[in-house]
């Protein structure tokens, strides 16, 4: 069953048409890899899903409930409730620098009054253990490596138990030797059947972990399908050209 339905999504910045009639579906437990050249609209698409961008037309529905239906947004309360089913991990982590690692995790649940302080703490420590950072609970983000920061950001996004986790190039800001630890956490999540949409340049990750791949170019979905098929045997010329360039790099 589709947990996320996106249809005819349109978005422009001024004269620039960034998303042109984007449609796709994500099923429960899917891991979707989104690939495509820089500037093709991948981030804008992801950001639209969590309402960081306002779209100009089309629909987005989670669990059959519309965030936006044919260009008309739901009421703020409803919108917030539906959007809360999605978590997001950013390229640049966006941790709160003035708060310790554990405080980063518990801030939102505390302010949203979901459960007790003890519950937040326990859940936070549990998630830190899961991403291998139990010993960093009381440390400020500035003391962490990039890979550690991104793992904290993933743990923070998991605090709300999202049904879908979105990643926007989670390893692109990292030194090459630090990408492995982040990808490993994401693989573990995939094994636990977390539904994920991952914008990535890591073709190996897309092939090994994703069960669906989408190639975007110039605001359109050019091709989608199983990752092995799309990555080794692309049908469209633009996909071929992109993969050719990426492999050579």
């Amino acid at each position: 069953m589709a947990i996320l339905e996106v249809s005819n999504l349109k978005k422009s910045f001024g004269q620039l048409e960034v998303l042109k009639q984007i449609s796709f579906e994500v099923n429960k437990n899917d891991v979707v890899a989104i690939i495509g050249p820089s500037g093709s609209g991948k981030s804008t698409m992801l950001r639209s899903l969590v309402h960081l961008e306002e779209i100009d037309g089309g629909s987005i529905a989670v669990d059959g409930e519309f965030i936006v239906n044919d260009g008309v947004y739901s009421k703020p309360q409803q919108l917030k409730k539906i959007a809360s089913k999605m978590g997001m991990v950013f390229q640049h982590f966006n941790l709160f620098p003035h708060l310790s690692v554990l405080e980063n995790l518990v801030l939102a649940p505390k302010l949203l009054k979901q459960g007790s302080t003890t519950e937040h703490r326990e859940r936070g420590l549990e998630l830190l253990a899961k991403v291998g950072l139990s010993d960093k609970a009381d440390v400020l983000p500035a003391k962490l490596s990039g890979g550690q920061k991104q793992r904290v950001a993933i743990a923070r996004a998991l605090m709300r138990n999202p049904e879908i986790l979105l990643f926007d190039e989670p390893t692109s800001a990292l030194d090459p030797e630090l990408t492995g630890e982040v990808l490993q956490v994401m693989k573990d999540l995939a094994k636990e059947s977390m539904t994920m949409i991952v914008v990535t340049h890591e073709m190996e990750f897309a092939r090994d972990v994703a069960n669906k791949a989408i190639f975007m170019d110039n605001g359109e979905i050019i091709e989608s399908g199983s990752p092995s098929e799309l990555l080794t045997n692309p049908k469209r010329d633009r996909t071929k050209a992109f993969l050719h360039r990426t492999v050579r790099n």
């Binding site: 917030k80 950013f90 966006n94 709160f96 302010l111 949203l112 709300r160």
Partner: peptide, 23 residues
């Protein structure tokens, strides 16, 4: 202050007041 701070706060469900005062 990086705009990513506002974005992370929003995605985590904080309202404007909470974002301003706590982040």
């Amino acid at each position: 202050i990086d705009k990513g701070q506002y974005e992370a706060s929003k995605v985590l469900g904080l309202n404007r007041w909470q974002t301003t005062t706590r982040v």
